[in-house]
């Protein structure tokens, strides 16, 4: 492979990797991380007791800090909004250990 071909192939690989990352990140818009702020409702798949925060609010120690939920057609939440009770789906195997702080 000559130098120009290598460079062109490199640009192609870089563009595809960047594009794939953008695609997978944007596609996850309706799946959001909610934090279990109220441990009165201890079950991870119980939508009660969850709140939305865009930043990482987990600390170590504990077995349920956050989980991903598909909010479907519900509006995009703002900071501190509770997880809607209807039209949401718990995403299995997305529980983060630790506790909300």
């Amino acid at each position: 492979m000559n130098r120009i071909k290598k460079a062109v192939f490199g640009v192609l690989v870089a563009g595809l990797a960047f594009g794939f990352s953008a695609f997978t990140t944007v596609k996850r818009q309706s799946i959001l991380t909610y934090y279990k702020t109220d441990m009165t409702f201890i079950n991870a798949n119980d939508p009660r007791g969850y709140k939305y925060y865009s930043d990482d609010r987990c600390e170590s120690e504990g077995n349920l800090c956050s989980a991903n939920w598909n909010i479907g057609t519900n509006p995009t939440p703002s900071e501190g909004d509770a997880l809607p009770a209807l039209g949401v789906t718990f995403i299995a195997n997305t529980i983060t250990d630790g506790h909300f702080e």
């Binding site: 870089a14 563009g15 990797a17 990352s21 990140t25």
Partner: peptide
């Protein structure tokens, strides 16, 4: 290139987090 471009894009798209 794949590793760096992929991870750079994912970091930039979730820069706040």
């Amino acid at each position: 290139i794949i590793l760096f471009m992929y991870t750079a894009a994912s970091k930039l798209f979730t820069i706040k987090s």
